[in-house]
C-alpha cells in the first residue's frame, strides 16, 4: 500500500511530464497520448501492480477527445484514473490489449462509437453497430436523421 504522494513520485519517475488532478474521488493522471503505453506497462508490471482495468471509455469534450482509463488493483485495492487527450480530427492511440485483455472489446466499442483508431489492435472491427453504419454516435456533433434522440 502506497500513499498518494508515493504514487505520484513513482509515476513521475516513470513519466516525468504527466500532470495530476486530485479534485475527484481518485488520483487523476493526465498523460500524453504518445507516453501512454510505457506508462501503462509500468503501472501494470512495476511495483504498483494495477492489474484490473475496470473501465475504459472516451469523452467528447468538443475541442478534443479524452480517453479515460480506470485502473485498480486486486491486491491493495487502490484506484486511479489515467487520461490521455487525442485530437478530434485524427484520433489515434496505442492499444492496451496486450496489457489487459479486457481492453480488446472495450477498445472496439470506443472505436465504433467515437472513431478512435487503436494502433496495433489485433482485431479492430465494429462490435455493436452494423458494418455499414455511417458516423460515430457518441460524438457530440452526431446527427441521425431518423432516430435522433432529442428532448
Amino acid at each position: 500500500m502506497m500513499t498518494q504522494d508515493e504514487i505520484k513520485e513513482y509515476i513521475l519517475s516513470i513519466a516525468p511530464t504527466v500532470s495530476f488532478d486530485e479534485t475527484g474521488e481518485w488520483l487523476n493522471i493526465i498523460a500524453d497520448a504518445t507516453q501512454l503505453k510505457p506508462l501503462m506497462t509500468a503501472l501494470r508490471t512495476g511495483k504498483i501492480q494495477m492489474d484490473y482495468l475496470f473501465c475504459l471509455t472516451c469523452v467528447d469534450v468538443k475541442t478534443h477527445l479524452t480517453m479515460v482509463y480506470h485502473l485498480s488493483a486486486t491486491t491493495h485495492r487502490q484506484s486511479m484514473v489515467i487520461k490521455a487527450n487525442v485530437s478530434r480530427e485524427q484520433p489515434s492511440i496505442e492499444t492496451l490489449c496486450d496489457i489487459w485483455r479486457t481492453a480488446e472489446f472495450l477498445e472496439r466499442e470506443v472505436f465504433e462509437m467515437f472513431g478512435v483508431i487503436f494502433l496495433n489492435h489485433p482485431d479492430l472491427r465494429r462490435l455493436i453497430l452494423e458494418d455499414d453504419f455511417k458516423g460515430f454516435p457518441l460524438l457530440k456533433d452526431f446527427e441521425d436523421p431518423i432516430n435522433m434522440i432529442k428532448l
Binding site: L127, I128, L129, E130, P137, L138, I149, K150, L151
Partner: peptide
C-alpha cells in the same frame, strides 16, 4: 467471435438527454 448489437438501444446516448 461474438457479434453484438441486435438489441443495442444506445442507452448511453439516450441518457445524455435525460
Amino acid at each position: 467471435e461474438p457479434h453484438l448489437g441486435y438489441i443495442h438501444r444506445s442507452i448511453e446516448k439516450m441518457c445524455e438527454s435525460l
